[in-house]
Write a protein that binds this DNA or RNA. Structure first.
Lengths: 127, 127, 127, 127
DNA sequence: GTGGTCTAGACCACA
DNA sequence: GTGGTCTAGACCACA
């Protein structure tokens, strides 16, 4: 259920995290559900186990999942994932909006960009 | 007129570029105006000349400045800087807006964020 | 597969780029194929890794290759290399043809030069 | 009568040489005619006398002009300039045509480029 | 191991 | 003095 873009400049471990968070937010992964083991996921995705390990550890430190030694990794409360994502998104957005403003965009243009982002698009239907 | 943050995760040469682009957009640096020489700027900023050179060459490849051996580096057309900044800004924003949408933000919330970004704030008065 | 001329006035990093572009155009290097690592190529060619890095980064900025940290450098679309080379070649040629015309060459002489360039020659058979 | 492009990547001393050669070929500068003094020309063009000096010395070594100590620089035989220019143009052209061929241009396309170079154009009328 | 950044310092052509 | 190239070597994040 995870798709990695090997050509992207975004590190693989971050791509993984974002997608797992989205799966939690969408309810596909539920609270206390066990995540695939590091080795299995690495094999399925065809990448180095170290990369999975790094993603899991980072998510644990962010409170999105928890690990039980000898048993595996599990989804923490979805509300943790949600509040984290909202907080991070909002911070990034505010920074970018200021940037866009300094780049000469008008409020009107930015409102249009928001509306455009909420237009249903073909790609979205495929998800 | 350039201030570098040695602690930042943003590379020094990119910090330089962003600030020079902003100086051009603000009209402080004008078309065909000469930029500080590689060595002088390096001395003033307390960093290695190679780092300045990298920033200047990158900006030249992006069409923001042009360099002439034996003479120096000069500001290219400000419109080049402007279109570049707008393009990059918009691309980053569109990506983030999609992200925010997936994070559960409503169009209404994002419109509010846009309006908030255009509210005059104390920091802006200091510029 | 790359041969550098240390005596040449053409910088080493540009010699490298030209030869890699030619390898892509000849189909020796295919789309998404991995290029030698910065360190390995530097060792093989007997030059400093920084010089390889400069060549690779320049090619990436020109859209000929793409790089992913931790994974390596890869050939982008060959059509990118082709259009780039055609564009550069044509620009240089137009400039030189004007020059030749001002030097007193007739259209007839230049047409002959074109035909001569397309005559099979011994060196070409050796390729 | 000499126009320098300060933004060009071609060194000023070479720009000068090319234009003086063209003036000789066009008959504007005649055999044994005296060239402007280094200092005067530097003043008129607004550039460093060293640059003029370098151009004059280079042209002398190429047999296009000759200098008489204490008297100045003089145009050598126009035929010297012409044969030099033809020789250099032809060598550069042959190299570029091969390059263009390897870049995938057909003989037909190159013949068209030649014809295009001989079309009268507005800019040429202004010379 | 992979690329990316940065320092230090040398040498070159050009102005 | 100006930019441009190159070597040597350190340190970092990522896989």
């Amino acid at each position: 259920m995870i798709k990695l873009d090997l050509q992207s400049k975004t590190p693989l471990y971050l791509q993984m995290e974002q997608q797992i968070i989205d799966l939690i937010l969408m309810g596909v992964l539920k609270e206390n559900e066990q995540l695939p083991s590091v080795r299995n996921l690495a094999r399925d995705l065809g990448i180095n186990p170290n990369t999975i390990q790094k993603a899991y550890q980072d998510m644990e430190s962010r409170g999105i999942i928890y690990s039980v030694v000898g048993r595996g990794n599990f989804v923490a409360s979805p509300s943790a994932a949600e509040s984290l994502k909202r907080r991070e998104s909002m911070a990034a957005l505010e920074k970018l909006l200021q940037d866009a403003r300094h780049a000469g965009f008008s409020a009107q243009e930015l409102h249009q960009a928001v509306d455009a982002a909420f237009q249903p698009r073909k790609e979205d239907d495929l998800l």
